[in-house]
Design a protein around this nucleic acid. Structure first.
Length: 719
RNA sequence: GAGCGAUUAGCUCAGCUGGUUAGAGCGCAACAUUGACAUUGUUGAGGCCAGAGGUUCGAAUCCUCUAUCGCUCACCA
């Protein structure tokens, strides 16, 4: 029997592209992405527990890809769930300026179209061009983000370079400087000759290469042979270091020698240092303080000079025409030629080595001594109980104040902290937050504004992660003592990719612990990489890019969301394929048809009693709902999604609806059946809504008996 | 070199704190159906849960070792 009135729309298959834009518009116009509006309208209790997430701000350079889609899907599911569960739920949107990445992208474009470098344009003009670029891409990113159905509170939108965030960054720098945590020093740093800037240890990517390890003496008269893959740097040597227990060389320790190496006079002292490994090479290490981290430290311990022999363009600073002004690779050839001519080489062997390159530019890192700004991670902080930044980062994970999901990342995190050195935060680029340090003659002052006439500001900008590290509280109006900060900080959850655990997550903990004396978030949920069906990384060069927006247009955003969530455990890389997305489109359509069937057979509220069997079915459904609730509470989204999917399709549709067909046709059993089906359907829409917000909302709007205007704000009870 | 993870059906993966005959999706085979369903349904085939030892009344799950793959970290010059 078909007694119900069915909306016209339901008679056709579900058409996501037709439904999605108007649905999102309705959500946005409701104002309910904003928790204060929820309270004002009585939808959230004024004293409700807050639940906060900050969106990891996408780089302004980046178009939305499957990775961002995964992130948005996970976070939106959680946020919608919490909102429906009655939390005072806030999800803060934003974008990141991504200093180096953005500047080099714009520079590249200008180089390509106009053949000009940044030096041709000058600082001001380049920054103007970057601003134009940023304004364009920001809008694109926001629109794309909205298409996924994200319930971000757009009224709180933040950009790392906007006015408020600028103030936060300056204030943070000043407070850390005043606390003696930020210092300026001339020491060896990672220099990227291609990007013409320093970079932090974490921005280095090691690439395996074959190299030749040469074993030789500086000169015929020199008593000890050394080994190196970089003979050209030997013109900067000041010592040969051997292990204190190495009998072979004990008699030479303390001796000094003058030699001429490839035309360059050098003075070599033999020192004993425990950092040298007896078994490697000849057991003797040529010490080049200015161009090697380990050698710099040896020089520290033995009070050795540190002559710089390579410049910022990776060219030689010393020597005759064979070396002077030559690139290091050419100089290496020249030195090897000379060594051969002199008959000094004892051994040449091919070895595997990891070469340090800059993440952004791919340039080969040249360690150089430079005057830079650093964050001291080893200094005891009096206002924080004498603890160091290192300890402040370690503690909350160790104590459980912050939980990382999956938990095995704890070890990775601790290992990183153990090896942590002071953080070099100054960058020689133009786009970013300029360092608030001012110089006048020998004077130096930390000040957000110019201290007055004759003061020059430091030309460098801050590492982009410095500002990102403040994100959980800079988005909540810090340093102002705002209500937002009181209510929403510490945030509840930080959801991001495991690849930025160190870059971002660790540094947010550092900043929040220091500036606020509290953790930035209570839980960290790390998702994996999205790969293609074959398990390859998705990249433009491989041509295997699956564009989430394109897929959304074809199969609906709900299908894209589900395909990213189902079968995806946290911290594990997942695979996506068009086939999988298509499968979930079928599910959206299945829901559509289930609703069609139920509504076709529904005549409105009746005062009927369910049969014992129907009570049992309802109980079974309650159990499923409880399970989904528990799984979501534990952030097991993948199993929650599958549980819901499976129940709807294979229990509700295949079993309950099938067995209902004859019962509905019978006047005695029909009424209670109608009630049962309608009840389970409407509750199912609630439970599925976080996962598939569009189709469920569309269907909710078609339900004849409902007491909320939007499914998005319909309460989710666990029983 | 160190650390971490993975290894479960043809493919992609779930399986939380050990508990009856090990699960899903896709794919495959047969049958049914024009059905609420751009199809869908029913049934089925297919797994010594990488290997070897151990703990236990009981192990895919805990421990040890081995193998293969992957990731991360590292200043062996």
């Amino acid at each position: 029997m078909q007694n119900g009135t069915v909306p016209e729309k339901l008679l056709k298959p579900y058409n996501p592209t037709e439904e999605e834009p108007s649905i999102y518009a309705a959500w946005e116009q409701s104002g309910y992405f904003n928790p204060e509006k929820m309270i004002a309208d009585g939808l959230t209790a004024p004293d409700a527990e807050p639940f906060t997430i900050v969106l990891p701000p996408p780089n302004v350079t980046a178009a939305l890809h499957m990775g961002s889609a995964l992130m948005l899907a996970i976070e939106d599911i959680i946020v919608r769930y919490k909102r429906m569960r009655g939390f005072r739920t806030l999800w803060i949107p934003g974008t990141d300026s991504a200093a180096i990445a953005t500047q080099s992208k714009v520079e590249k474009e200008i180089q390509k179209s106009e053949g000009k470098s940044r030096y041709d344009l000058g600082r001001e003009e380049l920054l103007r061009r970057i601003d134009i670029f940023v304004e364009e891409t920001k809008g694109t990113i926001i629109n794309q983000t909205k298409r996924f159905g994200t319930t971000l509170d757009w009224s709180r939108y933040a950009y790392t370079m906007d006015e408020k965030r600028y103030r936060a960054v300056m204030e943070a720098f000043k407070r850390m400087y005043d606390a003696g945590l930020i210092y300026r020093a001339h020491k060896i740093v990672n220099w990227d000759p291609k990007g013409q800037t320093t970079i932090s240890d974490d921005e280095i990517v090691y690439e395996p290469r074959k190299a030749t390890l040469y074993t030789f003496k500086y000169s015929k008269d020199f008593p000890i042979a050394i080994s190196t893959t970089r003979p050209e740097t030997k013109v900067g040597d000041v010592a040969v270091a051997v292990h204190p227990d190495d009998n072979r060389y004990a008699s030479y320790v303390g001796n000094e020698y003058d030699v001429t190496f490839c035309g360059v006079p050098i003075h070599i002292k033999v020192v004993a240092d425990a950092s040298v490994e007896k078994e490697f090479g000849t057991g003797a290490l040529g010490v080049t303080p200015a161009h090697s981290f380990i050698d710099w430290e040896i020089a520290d311990r033995h009070d050795l000079p540190r002559p710089q022999v390579i410049d910022e363009r990776a060219k030689m600073l010393v020597g005759d025409e064979r070396l002077q002004g030559k690139k290091v690779a050419e100089a290496r050839e020249a030195v090897v030629t000379w060594l051969r001519e002199e008959g000094l080489i004892e051994k040449e062997e091919t070895v595997d080595q990891n070469i340090a390159t800059a993440e952004r530019t791919g340039g080969i890192i040249e360690p150089l001594p430079k005057l830079q700004w650093f964050v001291d991670v080893h200094k005891p902080i009096s206002t924080r109980g004498g603890k160091t930044l290192k300890e402040l980062m370690q503690e909350p994970i160790a104590s459980g104040a912050i939980t990382i999901i999956p938990d095995y990342f704890d070890k990775t995190y601790f290992h990183w902290i153990d090896n942590l050195r002071d953080w070099c935060i100054s960058r020689q680029i133009w786009f970013g937050h300029r360092i608030p340090m001012w110089y006048k003659g020998d004077e130096m002052r930390c000040s957000i504004d110019s201290p007055g006439e004759g003061w020059e500001q430091d030309p460098d900008v801050l590492d982009t992660w410095f500002s990102s590290a403040l994100w959980t509280f800079s988005t909540l109006s810090w340093p102002d003592e705002s209500n937002d900060l009181k209510i929403y900080h510490p945030t509840s959850l930080l959801e991001t990719g495991y690849d930025i655990l160190f870059f971002w997550v660790a540094r947010m903990i550092l900043m929040s612990q220091f500036h606020l004396g509290e953790v930035p978030f209570k839980t960290v949920y790390l998702h994996g990489l999205v790969r293609d069906a074959k398990g390859q990384k998705i990249s433009k060069s491989l041509g295997n890019n699956i564009d989430p927006l394109e897929m959304g247009a074809k199969y609906g955003m709900d299908a894209v969301r589900m395909s990213l969530i189902a079968g995806m455990a946290p911290g594990t890389d997942s695979k996506i394929s068009e086939e999988k997305i298509k499968g979930y489109k079928h599910f959206a359509n299945k829901l559509w048809n289930i609703t069609r069937f139920v509504l076709t057979n529904y005549e409105g509220e009746h005062n009927v009693t369910l049969s014992p069997n129907e009570h049992a079915l309802l109980d079974e459904w309650s159990e499923v709902k409880k399970k989904i609730t528990n799984e979501l509470d534990a952030y097991r989204l993948h199993t929650a999604a599958e549980t819901a999917y499976h129940y709807l399709w294979h229990t509700f549709a295949d079993v309950i609806i099938e067995e209902s067909k004859p019962l509905l046709a019978n006047a005695d059993t029909g009424a209670s059946r109608q009630k049962l089906l309608y009840t389970i359907l409407s509750e199912s829409l609630i439970v599925l809504h976080p996962f598939m917000p569009f189709v469920t909302e569309s269907l909710w709007q078609l339900l004849p008996a409902k007491n909320t205007s939007l499914l998005m704000i319909t309460p989710w009870s666990s029983n």
